[in-house]
Design a protein around this nucleic acid. Structure first.
Lengths: 235, 235
DNA sequence: AGGCGAGCTGATGTATACATCAATAGACCT
DNA sequence: AGGTCTATTGATGTATACATCAGCTCGCCT
């Protein structure tokens, strides 16, 4: 399997990445290398390495002589990133409509079914998860591994902020309808339609920015002063 | 200005990046941290840091216990990356057609003029350089800084391989005609046309892959055995 | 009392020494 | 002679100590 023995730096990187993506570490929060070293029983060197990698992937920023913090993405850049995300998703859909295999199509239908089930059950968390699987199926079906990788990476980078979005329950119904339309387009090999549908599917969430921006600003403000309640040094 | 005092690791990173992009270090070539340390009069720590960053940006790969090497991109992935590059360029064009400012349009026309001059003079190197400026103008004019950054980064990553392309002199004329078409589309705000023109402009180079692939394979083969003639440790 | 400056503090950046482990080459056994 | 096991080697990975430097505080001067 994928080698079970990974370097401390890699493990730490994954752990921090997961913490950031899943909101256990919020944007603006400070990361103390020494504290992290104590927590994971390693020296500052691999901690530093892990942080460097997170900086490279855009999840962390480090200000010399001031400290390292979970990256705070400005609203303007956030919009820009959504714009690119929509394009990448659209491209995945366009390619998938042309290249998808039978197995992949089956997996896509399965993912759609799971989304429908979650929506019917009103389980927003479950829907959020299955929604990811759905989109991931399309990435894979694009048969462009590099594109899929880029899409996943950007999505990860946006994740700390996305979780504020779909909370709106009404959005689930609309999202589901769009999913069906997307699947239909891919099934029939209508590349342009699939692209446009997916692009809009992503952008619609961006257009709900009225509510969204408010949430972000609020989160920005609360995280401005380094919230000590999230201190990871405490056991 | 942009702080003149940068860390050794950053300087080294930039130096190596430049070496790789401009072909002084060829794909597959080994990078010896100790030798680099001696050359730049620093310890292995900042060297390692620089290498880590290059790994993150995809220009270098490191195999544990075997060594670190300039990244070798397989032909299949190379094609995938060109596909994405074309999409990003197209997106830049589409956005630029809607958002470009007068100043930016002037700069774009200027860049086109320089391309024309270089082409008329038959100076391929100059054309290569001005061609970059031209495309960079479009990135900027997209008014999406994140998109522009991603496009530049991907272009950098492809650069070590792109230099094998435009060598064909005949391509300059065709390229120039496409440039004019692109500028015209942007001038008139025809977003879709600008997008399609740019996408094809990039992909055409990919379709010339018949010749291209041969060159890459040749380069791949010659770099397979770690060529000692490129050893940087020698003064 | 308010502003300014020197020293302190705490953060990142760097150097060096050690640990670890896979690839390799050598010798031994068959 | 061929294959296998083992010891060496050389590479990355990690630990620790030191250097450096900006921000902050405390105290002095005006």
């Amino acid at each position: 399997m994928s080698s079970v023995k990974r370097s401390s730096a890699q493990q730490l990187r994954d752990a921090l990445e997961d913490d950031i993506i899943n909101g256990r570490l919020t944007p603006g929060e400070r990361l103390d290398p020494e504290a992290l070293g104590r927590e994971f029983s390693v020296s500052r060197t691999p901690v530093r390495e892990a942080i460097q990698q997170l900086v490279a992937s855009g999840l962390v920023t480090v200000s010399p002589k001031k400290g390292t913090f979970v990256a705070r993405i400005g609203i303007d850049q956030l919009i820009e990133m959504f714009e690119v995300m929509a394009e990448l998703e659209g491209m995945c859909g366009r390619l998938a409509a042309r290249r998808i295999s039978e197995e992949e199509l089956a997996a896509l239908r399965e993912a759609l079914a799971r989304c429908e089930a979650a929506a019917e059950a009103g389980d927003t968390d479950e829907y959020y998860y299955e929604n990811e699987t759905f989109h991931d199926c399309i990435y894979t079906a694009s048969h462009n591994g590099f594109l899929a990788q880029e899409a996943r990476q950007l999505k990860q980078r946006l994740k700390p902020y996305r979780r504020l979005q779909l909370q709106v329950r009404q959005r689930m119904g609309g999202s589901l309808a769009e999913h069906r339309k997307i699947v239909a387009a891919i099934e029939q090999g209508e590349a342009e339609l699939a692209e446009q549908s997916l692009r809009e599917h992503v952008l619609i969430q961006g257009e709900r920015f009225s509510d969204f921006i408010a949430s972000v600003k609020k989160l920005d403000a609360s995280a401005t002063r380094l919230d000590p309640s999230h201190d990871r040094t405490r056991a």
